[in-house]
Design a protein around this nucleic acid. Structure first.
Lengths: 360, 360
DNA sequence: TGAGAGGGTCGAATCGATTCGATCGAACCG
DNA sequence: CGGTTCGATCGAATCGATTCGACCCTCTCA
């Protein structure tokens, strides 16, 4: 941007030096200069020094990444497609944990993570991102079109908790079974009237009752699987959809579910720990004792240490591990291997937020 | 990766089609084909159709972003340099808010955000990332070398809360004044023995006492400014450094500060709300009443709604706005403008965690 | 009817590096 | 002492698109 006035006199104002200029100044061919920088291939020590000196003199910062990525066919960038706004996605520690897991593994590759969101404007960029691979995190199949583009481009694809797709490495979680486990737990305690607070079911993140239509039209794979798991035990379990996985949303849904005394359930299955905490707050606000008057279970196994004084009954899922597996999958795919799909299992944690229903 | 067997017979197995191939099939020159895709320049409707049809036939996904970015000199990617691990950085809602603010503004540019961390291995990638601009978020000057590289490359630089640097657009916060305000508030309440829990002071994120040496060697701009602000009121205020801005770290530091009855302060100034919540937990654990026996202030103005039942006395800072300003700065710089540095002001919020000290 | 305008298309240069194969010495070995 | 090999270096092709200037053809207006 700035016109450097420093060494302007001698050299004509070439905007920015390139490898050829450096090579010329060093008195070697561009190919040799390239070798000197990349380190691959035999270059004598003196030549290398001379090239580096020339580079320093010209204020050359090293090979242009853009040109490198064209020539090499690799950009060293891994895309991470996240549903909707960063703000919402990062509110849930699970997403952060997964991201961290991905970074853990792919860091060794020297690759950066490019955050891509699927909402409107970003859609243009998602299609034209110079990525080597893409990890889809809990994304709706509304991505199908873009997945197709990625495939055409030969971009490696990994999906965490998504409907199975061709040529996409699946990293899955036992959402159905885990939810069934929670439901059984409540059933064994004697609960019969159980309500669900679900993760967003559709791309629009509609709040409201979990109706048959909403389920039929739903695209949120994780949310759907978890609902199905519950319904395997409580076939008619009603519930409400949250717009985001957050405490506030849990509170909203909780109030909606618990306010009406006539339809009040004896237990609530929240599809994330954050939502569960929100439901607990709703219960507190309505003066309902947990677990005395209302049992609540969550999902995820978030460390609530500092957040809530409850020991939540929940399914602990290995979020970081999921991310790591995705990262390893990316690495394997980029290496031309054919890694197998991975499925993770959640672990039941019996906390203090569930108890037999209150018999009046 | 996969060899498509579909239409293999006719065409020889060209790995992946390029624009030239599409142009050839459509019977036009590459330049015309390019025009047809980019939309800029005059192309007749029939020609465009023919090109698009050819592209479809060849399963061509559109111009290669890598080649585009080389030719255009723009990659459409904005780097965000975050200190250390994503896990740590994203634990603090402030960082997420800033990121979200950046994304808000730069999204209109159709650019993605590339997460870059400054720790060991990533250092290689940070230098070779094909970014158009970089936003440094609360980074230590250990980045100086890399900043130099960015500058050489002509990459636009924006720094949020960092020491002023040449050619780097500064987005600043009134850390000194805000901390002074908090300190004065405590002084006016009658506190004399005030302790600080600081954000990390150095890149190593050392825990321990805030000594003169630690301050002298410190590289954490924000932490240092905030300490200075406090010391303007309480010149000898002791304190401890946290390794991360989190509740757990606040708890650790809090216990260290409060455990020894003989040196126990009557008030603690935590440099983030998360740390403050941790200190509150420490106080609870030690049976100290807040604010009766211990006043606590934080910094940031995080919504603690769901997290803690306290209304924290704190300085509310416009985190999303800071991110937005950074995003706008990036856009302006890329447009060749010369935006001015921006400085934000925090707002004092009197909560219920501060009171006059307990007189025994 | 001829000049000018302008839409549509094409050629060729260019962005900046990487890399394969060739070349040229020098050292080494029998 | 001659042939071989290895190390260092160079030329030229290539990655895939964009874009400027030139060209042609048609339409319009005087």
């Amino acid at each position: 941007m700035q016109v450097k006035a420093t060494h302007a006199a001698a050299t004509p104002v070439r905007s920015r030096p390139n490898l050829a200029a450096v090579a010329a100044l060093a008195g070697v061919s561009p190919s040799t200069a390239s070798l000197a920088f990349s380190g691959s291939g035999p270059v004598s020590a003196v030549t290398r020094e001379r090239v580096l000196a020339a580079a320093a003199q010209l204020d050359y910062a090293g090979p242009d990444p853009r040109a490198q990525s064209l020539r090499r066919g690799r950009s060293g960038i891994i895309g991470v497609v996240i549903e909707d706004r960063l703000r919402d996605a990062f509110r849930d520690p699970m997403n952060i944990a997964m991201l961290d897991g991905i970074a853990d593994e792919t860091g060794s590759l020297g690759a950066g993570l490019l955050l891509l969101t699927e909402n409107g404007e970003g859609a243009a960029s998602i299609r034209n991102a110079p990525v080597d691979a893409v990890v889809l995190i809990g994304c709706s199949p509304s991505l199908a079109a873009q997945v197709a583009t990625f495939r055409q481009r030969g971009i490696a694809l990994v999906a965490i908790e998504a409907e199975p797709m061709d040529d996409v490495l699946a990293i899955d979680l036992d959402n159905f079974n885990a939810s069934q486990t929670l439901a059984r737990h409540l059933a064994e305690l004697g609960h019969g009237l159980v309500s669900v607070v679900s993760l967003p079911l559709d791309a629009a993140r509609t709040r409201g009752a979990i109706t048959e239509e909403a389920i039929a039209a739903g695209t949120g794979y994780t949310a759907l699987e978890r609902i199905r798991g519950v319904r395997a035990v409580f076939p008619d379990a009603p519930g409400r959809m949250a717009a985001v996985s957050s405490i506030e949303e849990g509170l909203i849904a909780g109030l909606a579910i618990l306010s009406d005394v006539s339809t009040r359930p004896t237990a609530v299955i929240a599809q994330s720990d954050l939502l569960a905490v929100g439901v607990i707050r709703a219960a507190e606000r309505l003066g309902l004792a947990v677990p005395g008057e209302l049992s609540i279970v969550g999902f995820d196994g978030v460390k609530l240490d500092g957040i809530a004084p409850y020991d939540l009954t929940t399914m602990v899922q290995p979020a970081v591990e999921k991310g790591r597996a995705a990262g390893r999958g990316v690495i394997a795919l980029l290496a031309g291997e054919h890694p197998r799909a991975v499925s993770f299992t959640s672990r039941f944690h019996r906390g203090t937020t569930t108890a037999p229903p209150d018999i009046h």
